[in-house]
Nucleic acid binder design. Structure first.
Lengths: 239, 239
DNA sequence: TCTGGAAAACCTGCCATACAGGTTTGCCCC
DNA sequence: GGGGCAAACCTGTATGGCAGGTTTTCCAGA
């Protein structure tokens, strides 16, 4: 696998690209925030002297990146931070074999040992509540993999949120789509109830460390969680 | 600043969304890799029973996320991993005040202490060459901020590349657009030649640590680099 | 038989127009 | 002043068309 990652230097002087630039400039110039409305397609079309088709494709592209929200009949609005687009990019990388599952685990370990630590320092009572609930729900439903997975994903996202840095949430979220597809593989590498419960127990311990406010312990537990997961994957021959 | 980050659960049953799904499914089903060609707009239009308009918007969206490449007259092709879209998402977050510069530095520190370490372990001779070249070029052109910045950005990207994990490259690259805009602020907080050269020296030392193959030292230098940068930003009142 | 090159076929970028719904605005009536 | 309805506005999708770039095909000449 090559590790080439680039960014096309988009002088891409197509009308659509330019229009996308104009729209983002408009957002910046008017200091628009989430929920604020953008000009209508027709208005932009006149203003920039391009057809409505071009404006539509520009809007469509921005919506694909989740920078704006589109809904029929309504004006386009500036969107809240959303990891949907990043999640698709990562998924694409995995499906086209430019990224391996193991590489993702390495990045997640790097990021999430940090979020666990920060969460232990900065969490609010509400967040502790939600994190613990997901951990316990994993144990409760441990015979329903589907359920365990959903709570597992939510657990990790909540910890990122508790770290109080939206960029971490963005990155952790970016792995969601891929995780949904690889998670069952990891689960199958732990065939016995004991092994499954052991893995779930780490989550519960981690939730407790965050509740207690013990960053070092939270960090170590998250590291252990990923080390175990990678070990399991390797044992199953996912290299 | 709120730390809410979500992903709209896209049941979004619009024709365009469905078409996007169909196209990505096609890529997966046929195991297409970078450079492989996709069906023409007209063909997909017939095959999915939607108008060419819809297919065009779907292609346009995928191109915005850099999952495919579009060029006039040519068929669409599967794209190489590219951080352009992620870079736009991050930029959008900063401009709409959902992300602060400091938060980005925290994430970069987390990620790049790891890439520095891995680079020291895995770098090839070529990579060492390129990393050193950029570091030295920073010193050489230290009176041309524009130049220093470009080499600085390239320096960090090369280190990520040398870490041999494209996901790290993706994330480091995702901060490029924002960095280009905030970098001059950081530079101005170091008004004297001595301060500027001191900051550049860290890069040179880091390049050497990577060349020597000293992961611990590389890690520490990268950490110091970010600590200094954050300190400078805070001193300048960028909170 | 092989090769160079031109024409044909194909393809995308962009535009104008049209119409079916959903949304917002504003006005009128109570 | 408030409620509700109609008009104005807006987006989603479709059709047809043309300019210009790209690929394929195939013929003429060596």
């Amino acid at each position: 696998m090559s590790t080439a990652v680039s960014a096309k230097h988009s002088d891409a002087a197509s009308l659509v690209s330019n229009t996308i630039g104009e729209i983002t400039r408009h957002i910046r110039a008017h200091e628009l925030g989430p929920g604020d409305r953008l000009p209508s397609e027709a208005a932009l079309s006149r203003q920039l002297s391009v057809s409505r088709t071009v404006v539509r494709e520009a809007f469509s592209s921005l919506a694909a990146m989740r920078l704006i929200d589109l809904r029929a009949g309504r004006r386009a609005t500036v969107a809240e931070l959303d990891y949907g687009a990043m999640s698709l990019v990562i998924e694409h990388g995995v499906h086209t074999e430019q990224i391996t599952v193991q590489q993702i685990y390495d990045v997640r370990r790097t990021i999430e040992t940090r979020t666990a630590m920060l969460a232990a320092l900065r969490r609010t009572a509400d967040e502790v509540e939600r994190i613990s609930t997901h951990a316990l729900a994993m144990r409760e439903n441990f015979q329903l993999p589907e359920q365990v997975m959903e709570h597992d994903l939510a657990f990790h996202l909540e910890i990122a949120k508790a770290a109080k840095n939206p960029v971490f949430s963005l990155i952790v979220g970016a792995f969601e789509r891929v995780s949904r597809q690889t998670w069952p593989i990891g689960w199958r590498t732990r065939p016995s109830d004991a092994e499954q419960l052991e893995m779930i127990q780490i989550h519960i311990d981690l939730a407790e460390a965050i509740e207690t406010g013990d960053p070092q312990s939270a960090r170590d537990l998250m590291a252990r969680h990923f080390d175990e997961s990678v070990k399991a994957l390797l044992a199953a021959g996912i290299a």
